[in-house]
């Protein structure tokens, strides 16, 4: 129960900051209305989204943490990965002859938390040359489409994703 309370307090603060940011009326009535609205929306979301009515819980999940020391190196590398991905696609598009070796690879992850899996999938989509096609929650597998399999047994993709996964697990689990 304690993690739920902590999560909803965090959501409340972030929602209020969002309200202040996009309305930018620093007056008493507007701030009061923003506080009330973010409280109501936190209650609704707390009921419906965090305990996840729409999914079945079959596995026990390890609790989530957030470590600042790892996050300091995590986010700049994330941005760098996005820029590298963009540059790689740009180089591929500007080549005179396009010779691609695409393929879909099955990856086994050791991450057990669902939220972390989703973050990993989104991060895989934004890193160079890979795109998440599907996720298998029962066996913790990801199916990744790679634009250019350099070696045909897909070891390079596995190595890249292993690196990402290690960093994410050090930060969140």
């Amino acid at each position: 129960m304690g993690t739920y309370r902590k999560k909803s307090i965090l959501l409340f603060v972030v929602l209020f900051l969002f309200w202040v940011l996009f309305t930018w009326k620093l007056e008493l009535p507007a701030l009061v209305v923003g506080l009330a609205l973010s409280f109501v929306i936190t209650r609704i979301s707390h009921l419906s989204f965090f305990p996840t009515v729409h999914e079945l819980y079959r596995h026990k999940e390890p609790p989530l943490h957030f470590r600042f020391r790892e996050a300091i190196t995590f986010f700049p590398l994330y941005v760098l990965n996005i820029l590298l991905a963009t540059a790689q696609v740009a180089l591929l598009a500007l080549k005179p002859h396009i010779e691609l070796k695409p393929g879909i690879v099955k990856l086994e992850t050791s991450i057990r938390n669902k939220t972390t899996l989703v973050i990993l999938a989104n991060q895989i989509t934004l890193t160079p040359g890979t795109l998440t096609v599907d996720i298998d929650l029962a066996h913790h597998n990801l199916f990744v489409h790679s634009i250019n399999l350099r070696t045909l047994d897909a070891d390079s993709v596995r190595k890249e994703v292993k690196e990402l996964e290690e960093r994410l697990r050090r930060m969140m689990e």
Partner: peptide, 22 residues
């Protein structure tokens, strides 16, 4: 360049690479 890739790449998945990621 990503729009150019969207024109030049051979199939749907590679076009998704170009069109959304880049």
């Amino acid at each position: 360049t990503s729009a150019l890739g969207m024109i030049r790449f051979p199939d749907v998945y590679t076009r998704i690479h170009a069109g959304t990621k880049a």
